[in-house]
Simulated scan of single mutants.
Amino acid sequence: MALIQVTEQFVHIPKGKFFVKTWSSAESKGAPIVLLHDSLGCVELWKDFPQRLCETTGRDVIAYDRLGFGKSTARVERPSIRFINEEAEFYFPFIAKELNLTEFVLFGHSVGGAMAVAIAGQFPQATQAVITESAQAFVEQRTIDGITQAKKDFSDPKAFSKLARYHGEKTQWVLDAWTGVWLSSEFLSWNLQTDLQKIKCPVLAIHGENDEYGSAKFPETICQYAGGSSHLFLLENTGHVPHRENPERILKIVSEFL
């Protein structure tokens, strides 16, 4: 097995800086995989998955903390209801330029999956493939119910402190950014249909049957409207975080897809 080298850096932008971590080896081949985290996520919450993904696929793996998360610069204002497309239009281009990413595979978990779709639509020539895991494709009642319950759960100081290990003083902003946007009436009409139709590359949609934030209609919608070829994996006895619940299965599915 090739030795995996891990590097860390900051990418500076007008509003602050992004924390970026890369897993690579001398034997890496093919377009690198860019990981896009979920609404409460960050680089470190991927745990050992990026390294295992690098080892399994033989590709470089890159993960970054969005602005306001993890080790990236804090934010004060709540994200707008266009925050998914703004990641593709404004923020991700800085990452692509600084890291000289002329081609890449996008792997997004939860809202990161929606961002992967939006970025692929923004960079159709550079995007070689899109992998969505537990991605939302529109706002479903199960989504609203799941986020409402999570908001209550994080009012428990123990749950809050666990999240604070990764986001520090940004933790309350991270929670408010998630619940404030997704539970707002203005966001109810959001969907991925237009962005999906811009995609020209293959798409892999992974979803757990027991996902507390969305039904199988999400990956079905992604595959229905994606402009390129699409593949759907609905995993039994699996919730919202398949790469943590069954990492071996996810690594196998992803490596075979690529």
Results as ranks from 00 to 15, higher is better:
Arg82Lys: 12
Asn100Thr: 14
Glu140Ala: 10
Ala96Phe: 06
Leu251Ser: 01
Glu209Gln: 15
Thr7Val: 12
Tyr213Leu: 13
Glu212Cys: 13
Leu234Ser: 05
Arg52Cys: 01
Cys42Phe: 01
Ala74Met: 09
Gln122Lys: 15
Arg75Lys: 14
Thr132Gln: 01
Ala135Leu: 03
Tyr91Val: 02
Glu87Tyr: 10
Asp211Glu: 09
Asp156His: 06
His167Thr: 08
Ile250Trp: 02
Pro124Thr: 07
Ala31Tyr: 11
Ala129Gly: 08
Ser184Leu: 02
Pro219Thr: 03
Trp178Gly: 07
Ala205Arg: 03
Trp46Arg: 00
Lys198Asp: 05
Ala26Tyr: 08
Lys47Leu: 14
Phe90Glu: 11
Ser215Met: 05
Thr194Pro: 03
Ser189Trp: 00
Ala205Thr: 03
Gly58Tyr: 06
Arg82Phe: 13
Thr56Gly: 00
Cys201Glu: 04
Glu236Ala: 15
Ile147Ala: 11
Phe218Val: 09
Val6Leu: 03
Pro124Tyr: 04
Lys162His: 12
Gly228Phe: 00
Lys200Ile: 12
Tyr166Gly: 11
Gln128Leu: 07
Pro14Gly: 04
Glu248Gln: 10
Asp38Trp: 14
Glu169Pro: 00
Ala126Tyr: 10
Ile33Ala: 01
Gly239Phe: 08
Glu186His: 09
Cys223Asn: 13
Glu133Ile: 02
Arg75Trp: 03
Ile206Thr: 03
Phe154Met: 07
Ser229His: 13
Gln141Asp: 15
Gly58Ala: 06
Glu103Val: 09
Ile206Leu: 09
